[in-house]
Design a protein around this nucleic acid. Structure first.
Length: 582
RNA sequence: GGCCCGUUCGUCUAGGGGUUAGGACGCAGGAUUUUCAUUCCUGAAACACGGGUUCGAUUCCCGUACGGGCUGCCA
């Protein structure tokens, strides 16, 4: 058997979403497992939707996750170019071939005409039953066609889909899927701008690049019949790749992200989006929209049922319901992350407009291997109880047969759990490296030794890299606030002098390390007759401002003598002042 | 609407004609811990429904319901 060749073929229309990344991962894993080749191909045939920077974003994302292509733009390979915009002539040539052998035809219908036809009849389909009535090289006399062509009239090339044939697809995940060609339209192969559509380009490239397996999202399943027809039209059916259509990643279950405290905010946000999207709607209706949304969201268990269209719904309400249904259910979209406060992109993205900005897994504080592990298990299962996998282990265990068939809901809590697992077991220097940017972002440049100790102290208490800072900022700067309630409860002003002595003792302690501090504090407790619980929490609050955090003695060691003693003295003064206020 | 795909705890899933239907996240309770976290223990929680086939169906078949995708000169 020939070498396995798999491609990831994204379109540079914006940030690459996590579903696309999983597709890339599965392609990569299969290639790795079988010693095959992982190819990156940029499908930039849509000039309208092209977004500058998107290609670079895609490549950076793949690399951050360790999914480096062996072939692709900038990666070498002997099947290039790997950017479809650079392969125009090739597609033209193959399109011409289909015209010549009668498998495709020229069509002159304008976009406006087609729009009108769809308006008039929503079920309109450009197919065998209707193409004689349209303006194309099949319905028009040959000389008229020639005249239009040589006159420079815009045209597209369409696939001539035969009527009443069966197309049977052997999908590696779904098994046999059958389509009747009478249900298929004459897909546009070449657009008026001279660029191919996805359908033509992907078949020509997969053939030319000798792609052996096409693993892609389920949204492509329906058009796979067209693709098979194209392979037939070219006479390439014998070399058709194997198909595997992945289930989609769905939005999280509403029950999982709807809480009492965030529901009103979400309702407002949805109302705003709805307003923005439908500028024509009457203000009076808009006023009622938010309460309605809130009501729907609050009845968590029946959201879907309450969004069902009813005959008596006024058009505006039907519109709102449809909008909510799209916003709350179905496949994961870029808006979801923003709305729900978790990342759905690998890396942060800043588009042209302020609206077009998203936080990535990286910036949210994920370790790439954790994100990979999470993604791998979203839709695929090893069949064992193992949950934690390195990339090598994934490649080893991976198989298409074990990919699930149904859509998987995105679950940020599970993702965070994976991250926590990786944070806990990561190598210190590596972890410190990953944490450093999050500390730097707040204006601190710790040395390696300090950062390493910090990371060791905090790693069991952080589920994201960002939380190292959020929960441990006081190692870098004075506490922003003190847990006043607990301090007041535990501070007895009559012991103020006693605590003052402790601070002084600590100030003279040599060496100033956790063991010595511990011994010293324990001695103090013994001598003073106080209890552990009457001392430690106060030290903790004095040092960190909060009751939470690593062991007090280790905390002091890392903070150092001067900072520790200084903070304690200052805090004791503050506690005294609170006590004096009564 | 039409076509296609799917359906095991709230979520990710294992399993498969006879099982106490297993694991993980999350949730609840408990133990350890000066706090938090970690760790450990315990608990609640699922085979969408209706018909077949069968001695027996959650597992196979058919319908229904529900969910999802596609239905562009987008990918």
């Amino acid at each position: 058997m020939n070498k396995m060749r798999l491609r990831f073929a994204p379109s540079p229309t914006g940030a690459l979403h996590i579903g696309g990344l999983r597709t890339a991962l599965y392609n990569f894993l299969l290639a790795k497992k079988h010693g095959g080749t992982f190819i990156l191909r940029i499908e930039d045939t849509d000039q309208q939707r092209y977004v500058p920077g998107a290609e670079q974003y895609i490549i950076e994302s793949l690399q951050w996750f360790g999914l480096t292509p062996e072939e692709g733009p900038g990666f070498g390979g002997s099947y290039g170019p790997y950017r479809q915009s650079e392969r125009r002539a090739t597609y033209q040539q193959y399109a011409r071939q289909l015209i010549d052998n009668g498998k495709a035809y020229y069509a002159f219908d304008t976009p406006e005409e087609l729009d009108a036809a769809r308006q008039a009849n929503p079920a309109f389909r450009y197919d065998a039953s209707i193409r004689q009535d349209m303006k194309n090289s099949l319905s028009l006399p040959a000389d008229a066609v020639q005249a239009r062509l040589s006159g420079g009239e815009p045209y597209v090339i369409r696939l001539k889909v035969p009527a009443n044939e069966q197309v049977v697809i052997q999908d590696l995940i779904r098994g046999e899927v059958t389509f009747d060609t009478s249900e298929l339209d004459d897909k546009v192969l070449m657009k008026a701008d001279g660029l191919p559509t996805y359908h033509l380009a992907n078949i020509v490239d997969d053939y030319l690049m000798e792609v052996s397996h096409v693993i892609r999202g389920e949204e492509w399943l329906s058009s796979t019949a067209h693709h098979v027809l194209l392979y037939r039209a070219f006479g390439w059916e014998g070399r058709m790749p194997q198909f595997a259509h992945l289930p989609l990643i769905l939005k999280p279950a509403p029950e999982s992200f709807l809480h009492k405290d965030n529901t009103p905010a979400l309702a407002r946000r949805l109302a705003e989006e709805f307003t923005k999207k439908n500028p024509g709607i009457a203000a009076a209706f808009l006023e009622k929209a938010e309460p309605f949304i809130l009501q729907v969201l609050q009845d968590k268990a029946n959201i879907a049922a309450n969004l069902k269209e009813k005959e008596k719904d006024e058009p505006q309400k039907a519109l709102l319901k449809a909008f909510l249904k799209d916003s709350l259910f179905g496949k994961l979209s870029k808006r979801d992350g923003d709305r729900l406060g978790f990342p759905v992109f690998p890396l942060s993205w800043q588009g042209e407009s302020a609206d077009d900005a998203f936080v990535g897994f990286r910036e949210y504080g994920f370790l790439p291997e954790a994100a990979i592990n999470f993604l791998a298990l979203l839709g695929w299962s090893p069949g064992t109880d193992q949950e934690l996998f390195s990339m090598d282990e994934l490649a080893e265990a991976f198989s298409i047969e074990k990919i699930g068939k149904s859509g998987a809901r995105f679950d940020i809590d599970k993702a965070r759990w994976f991250n926590q697992q990786y944070i806990m077991k990561a190598d210190t220097a590596y972890l410190a490296d990953k944490v450093r940017p999050f500390i730097n972002a707040h204006g601190h440049q710790p040395g390696d030794a300090f950062l390493h100790q910090f990371v060791e102290l905090m790693r069991e208490r952080a589920t994201t890299l960002a939380e190292f800072w959020e929960n441990g900022y006081y190692f870098f700067e004075p506490p922003k606030a003190y847990d006043e309630k607990n301090a007041r409860k535990r501070w007895d002003p009559s012991r103020s002098g006693l605590f003052g002595q402790l601070a002084t003792t600590l100030d003279g302690l040599e060496p100033f390390n956790a063991d010595a501090i511990k011994a010293s504090v324990e001695g103090f407790i013994q001598d003073s007759g106080l209890k552990f619980g009457e001392v430690l929490p106060l030290l903790r609050i004095g040092l960190a401002g909060t009751m939470q955090g690593p062991a007090v003695f280790e905390m002091m060691e890392l903070l150092g003598r001067e900072t520790s003693v200084g903070r304690l003295k200052q805090a004791f003064l503050l506690f005294d002042a609170w006590a004096a206020q009564v």
